[in-house]
Design a protein around this nucleic acid. Structure first.
Length: 561
RNA sequence: GCCGCGUUGGUCAAUCGGUUAAGACGCCUCCCUUUCACGGAGGAAUGAGGGGUUCGAUUCCCCUACGCGGUACCA
C-alpha cells in the first residue's frame, strides 16, 4: 500500500558544491538507502543567467568521490526524466500546470515590468514595511489579469506582451504542515505574497518547478535547508491546488551549517578568510579562473568527510562518533536531527580525518597519497626511491674509503658495502611505500601531511640546509668517531631490523661511554633533516644500509668543518 | 518592520521532570617517548533572562532578550 520511498537532491548548477549541500545529499541518501528507496539527482537549472557550465559534471564528481551515487540523474536517467528542469520546460510541463492554476482561478497573469515593480516597492516602502509585497492588497493596483478588464488582458496577451504567472494567495487562511524535524509548523497566508510561478521567459520558478517535479517524480520525502522554510506555504498551496495536499511529500527542513566565528550561514568567503575549504572538491570558476579549495584536495578522506558532516546536526545518542556509511544508513534517524544550526569546526573535521587515517588500511588511500607526493615532485613508486640519493648534496658525494679516513682520521676503512637489489619489482616498491605510510600514519591529520612526514624517505634531506644548531655546539671528536664506527657497523649487520639496529647502537654507545641520548638526535638529523618522523631505527630499516650510510656521511662532513 | 525557526561549556553535543548535567574537539597539567606524534591519567569550562505549572524544572507553558532564515521574474 505504501509507495516506494523516493528522495531527491536538487541543486542549481551555479558553482561549487558546498558543505551544507553535501550534508543534504548525505541525509537524503541515508534515508533513501535505509528505506530501500531511490535517490535521484535533479538539476534545477531554471535560471539561465546563473547557469555555470561544468557545474553539473562537477556536482556528480563530488557525489562520486563521496560514494553517494544517485540512482537516477541526467547522466543515468531512470523512468522519470528528463532530470534537468530546462529540458522539462522545453516539454511544456510547467506551462501546462500554470495554465491549470489560471483556469482554476488560483493564478493570474501579471504584466508589470521590472521598473513598475521597482516603483511599487519604493512607493509603498515605509519604516513599518521595508519590503512591500505583491500580495492580495497590492495586486489590485498592479497591471494583471485580476485588476485589468478582461478585454485588455486579452489584447495584451494577443499582442505578445511579456507576462509572468503569479499564484493568487487568499488572505486569512491557515496553513500548517508537519515537518519531520520541527514538528507542526504554522503560517497564515497573510504573510505570503503572490509569488511568480512562471517567468517571462517561460521558465518556472523554483516554487512551481519543485512541486510539479516532486509530484511527477513521485518524491515521497523532501529534505532541504532551513532557508526554504519560509516558502513552504507557497509550496503547500500549490500542492493543494494541483495534486492534493495529501499527496505531498513529507518535508524535513535541515538546520543550517554556520560559520565558526560569529553567526550566520557558512559561506565560501568564510573558508577563504579562515583558511579551510567549504567545497567538497576543488572548484575553478570558469569565468574568473579562480580556484576554490576542496576537502578532497586538502587531504580529506571521503569517509571522514561524510562522517564529520553526518555528525554536524545529528547523533545516535550513544556517544559514538565514528561511523561507516553503512552504520549511518542503519542508524540515521530524522527525529535525532537537531533543530538549531551547528557551527562548523575545522579542528574537529581534521580530528575525524585523523581517526579515519588511523582506522583504514593504508591501501585504502595510498593512491590519493601518491597523488599528493607527485604534486610535490616526488614519485614514491619511481626510481627515485630509497636506493639512492636523488638530489645529492655535494657532501653526499664522498663515499670512498679515502674520504672516510679524511673526515675521521685514524680510521682505516675496509668497507665493501653490501650489495642488494637495486631495482625492486613494482610490487616491492609498493610494499615499501605501504610500509612507510604505516610508519607515519599516526602523525597525520590530513593526507597531504604524508608528504611532509615521509618525503625524506624518497629524497635525502639537503645536508647543507639541515639545521644542526641543536647538536653542533656539543659536537666533539668522540661523537665523530662514534659515527664513523657506526657506519662500519652498519656495513656488517646481517639482521637488518629495528630491534637489532637499536641494540647494536646502544652497545656501541655504551662501549664509547656516550649516552645514547646524545647520539640519537644527531642521528635523526642526519637521516631526516629535522626533528620529526618515526623512530630512527625504523627509518634506518626502511632506508637500508647504503642510503643510511650516505646520509650519515654527508652530515658528518658538515659537523667536522 | 513583518513572518518563521532557533538558544545546554569556546565548539559539536547527551539528557526525553528527580543525574555529582555524559561524551568528543580544542585548551592546560602529568606519564610514556632522549624527535614529532600516537597512547594513557588528570584539569579548567555549560543550562540567555524573567515568570508560571509541579513536591521537584535544563527538560512542560508564557513573556522578554538575543541569533539566524525569509521577505526577487535566485535557488
Amino acid at each position: 500500500m505504501s509507495k516506494k520511498v523516493r528522495l531527491r537532491f536538487a541543486p542549481s548548477p551555479t558553482g561549487g558544491l558546498h558543505l551544507g549541500g553535501v550534508r543534504t545529499v548525505l541525509y537524503n541518501y541515508l534515508f533513501a538507502r535505509q528505506h530501500k528507496g531511490d535517490f535521484v539527482l535533479r538539476i534545477e537549472d531554471t535560471d539561465q543567467s546563473r547557469y555555470v557550465s561544468g557545474a553539473e559534471e562537477y556536482i556528480l564528481d563530488c557525489l562520486a568521490w563521496c560514494g553517494l551515487i544517485p540512482d537516477e540523474s541526467p547522466f543515468h536517467p531512470g523512468a522519470y526524466g528528463p532530470y534537468r528542469q530546462s529540458e522539462r520546460k522545453a516539454k511544456s510541463i510547467y506551462a501546462e500546470y500554470a495554465q491549470q492554476l489560471i483556469d482554476q482561478g488560483h493564478a493570474y497573469y501579471a504584466f508589470d515590468t521590472t521598473e513598475e515593480l521597482e516603483n511599487m516597492r519604493t512607493q509603498y516602502k515605509s519604516a513599518e514595511n521595508p519590503s512591500p509585497q505583491y500580495n492580495h492588497t497590492l495586486r489590485t493596483r498592479m497591471r494583471n489579469s485580476l485588476s485589468l478588464p478582461a478585454a485588455e488582458v486579452k489584447a495584451l496577451l494577443d499582442a505578445g506582451t511579456p507576462y509572468v504567472v503569479r499564484i493568487k494567495v487568499m488572505p486569512k487562511e491557515e496553513i500548517h504542515f508537519t515537518d519531520l524535524i520541527r514538528g507542526e509548523v504554522r503560517f497564515s497566508t497573510d504573510g505570503v505574497d503572490d509569488k511568480v510561478l512562471l517567468k517571462a521567459d517561460g521558465m518556472p520558478t523554483y516554487h512551481l518547478a519543485v512541486v510539479v517535479d516532486d509530484h511527477l517524480m513521485e518524491i515521497t520525502h523532501a529534505f532541504r535547508g532551513e532557508e526554504w522554510l519560509p516558502s513552504a506555504p507557497v509550496h503547500i498551496l500549490l500542492w493543494r491546488h494541483l495534486f492534493g495536499e495529501d499527496k505531498m511529500p513529507r518535508w524535513a527542513h535541515l538546520p543550517l551549517i554556520l560559520k565558526p566565528d560569529g553567526n550566520g550561514k557558512l559561506s565560501k568567503r568564510d573558508g577563504d578568510r579562515l583558511g579551510f575549504p567549504v567545497f567538497a572538491m576543488n572548484w575553478t570558476d570558469p569565468a574568473t579562473g579562480q580556484i576554490n579549495k576542496g576537502f578532497r584536495e586538502m587531504g580529506f578522506l571521503p569517509e571522514a568527510f561524510l562522517n564529520m558532516l553526518a555528525m554536524l546536526g545529528w547523533n545516535d545518542g550513544s556517544g559514538q562518533e565514528l561511523f561507516t556509511l553503512d552504520e549511518l544508513i542503519e542508524k540515521f534517524s530524522l527525529d535525532r536531527v537537531h533543530k538549531g544550526g551547528a557551527k562548523f569546526d575545522f579542528e574537529k573535521a581534521k580530528w575525524f580525518n585523523q581517526e579515519w587515517i588511523k582506522r583504514l588500511p593504508v591501501s585504502a588511500y595510498q593512491d590519493q597519497v601518491i597523488g599528493f607526493f607527485r604534486a610535490a615532485g616526488i614519485d614514491p613508486l619511481g626510481n627515485a626511491g630509497t636506493t639512492g640519493t636523488t638530489n645529492a648534496s655535494p657532501a653526499t658525494a664522498l663515499d670512498t674509503v679515502a674520504e672516510l679516513s679524511e673526515i675521521a682520521p685514524g680510521i682505516t676503512g675496509p668497507a665493501s658495502i653490501p650489495t642488494y637489489d637495486e631495482t625492486p619489482a613494482p610490487s616491492q616498491q609498493e610494499e615499501k611505500f605501504q610500509q612507510i605510510l604505516t610508519l607515519v600514519k599516526d602523525r597525520c591529520h590530513l593526507l597531504t601531511e604524508f608528504v611532509q612526514q615521509a618525503s625524506f624517505f624518497f629524497r635525502a634531506p639537503n645536508a647543507a640546509d639541515t639545521d644542526l644548531s641543536p647538536v653542533k655546539p656539543k659536537w666533539n671528536d668522540a661523537k665523530q668517531l662514534f659515527f664513523v664506527e657506526w657506519i662500519r657497523q652498519l656495513q656488517l649487520i646481517r639482521t637488518w631490523d629495528a630491534p637489532t639496529l637499536e641494540k647494536e647502537f646502544k652497545e656501541m654507545a655504551a662501549a664509547a661511554e656516550i649516552k645514547p641520548g646524545d647520539l640519537l638526535l644527531p642521528l635523526r638529523l642526519m637521516l631526516v633533516g629535522g626533528k620529526f618522523g618515526p623512530g630512527v631505527f625504523d627509518i634506518i630499516t626502511v632506508l637500508g644500509p647504503e642510503e643510511s650510510i650516505a646520509r650519515i656521511k654527508a652530515v658528518l662532513a658538515q659537523l667536522q668543518s
